[in-house]
Structures are given as structure tokens and as C-alpha cells.
Amino acid sequence: MYKHKIYTMSFARVYPLLVSKVERKGRTKSEVDEVIRWLTGYTQEELEEQLKKQIDYETLFKEAPHLNPSRTLIKGVVCGVKLEDIKEPTMQEIRYLDKLVDELAKGKSMDKILREK
């Protein structure tokens, strides 16, 4: 089975880029962590351990303690593709995270990002 190159990309290498993206817009690393924890169910300690282990994106989601069922409420377009049209589960999870980080960088309130209201 063909795996997209992003699956094997080290999440630990991408993570600082996600943090940098939101910090340029006045948001924080702790908010990025909150979004990741919401999406995956990792505790802060578990997330930090995964970053230390240099896991790839596929492992990040494969080992996630509890993927949030509300993640299916995340709609929109990432990289020109509608999230709900992505058929491959791992790629959809990756794009959900991308969309959440984009919303954070655009200044959306955390309760809306986390689909609480």
C-alpha cells in the first residue's frame, strides 16, 4: 500500500513549525498543545514523550489514546481539499490537525476551535 510521504515525517520536526505559525499571530505553544490533546486524547506528559521519541504522524494518530469524536465536526478546506472528502483515515486526521492550527492562527476563540459552541 502506498503511504503518503507526510505519514513518515517526524511529528517532532513539524511541531515547532506549528507553534511558530501560531506564535507569529499572538497565540501560544500551550494553545497548540491543547488543540493536539483535544484531538488525540494524549495528556501533556504523553504528548511530550511522543515528541521526545521522534514519532511520525502515522504513529501519533495510531497510538492516540482517544481520538475525539467531535473531530468530525471540523469542516473546511486544507491544501485545496475538503476535509470531509478525504477518504484515507490517517490523512484526514493530519488535515484535521492542520485545520485546527490554522483556526488558532486566525484568531478563532478556543471554544469554537474545540467545537464547544
Rank of each mutant, 00 (worst) to 15 (best):
K21C: 07
Y15C: 06
D102S: 08
F11S: 01
P89E: 09
D33K: 05
S30C: 01
R24F: 08
L39G: 02
V77P: 07
L51S: 06
A12K: 11
T28W: 02
L67G: 04
E88M: 03
E116N: 10
K106M: 13
T8E: 15
Y42H: 04
A64S: 15
S70L: 15
I94M: 01
K106G: 10
Y96T: 01
L47D: 04
P65M: 07
I6S: 07
M1D: 12
K99W: 06
I74K: 00
P69I: 02
D56P: 06
K87M: 04
P89S: 09
K117C: 07
T28L: 05
Q54H: 12
P16Q: 06
H66S: 13
A12V: 11
T90E: 07
Q92D: 02
L67V: 11
L51M: 12
E23H: 09
L83F: 02
K53D: 11
R13E: 14
T72M: 14
L100D: 01
E46W: 04
Y7C: 03
K5D: 11
K25P: 03
T90K: 07
Q92V: 00
K62S: 10
G76E: 09
P16W: 13
V32N: 05
T8N: 15
L18R: 11
D56H: 10
K52E: 05
Q92W: 09
K5A: 14
I113H: 00
S10V: 06
R37W: 08
V35R: 01
V35M: 04
T90I: 09
G76N: 09
A64E: 14
M110C: 01
L51K: 13
P65K: 14
V22C: 01
K82V: 01
K75N: 08
N68H: 15
Y7R: 03
K52S: 08
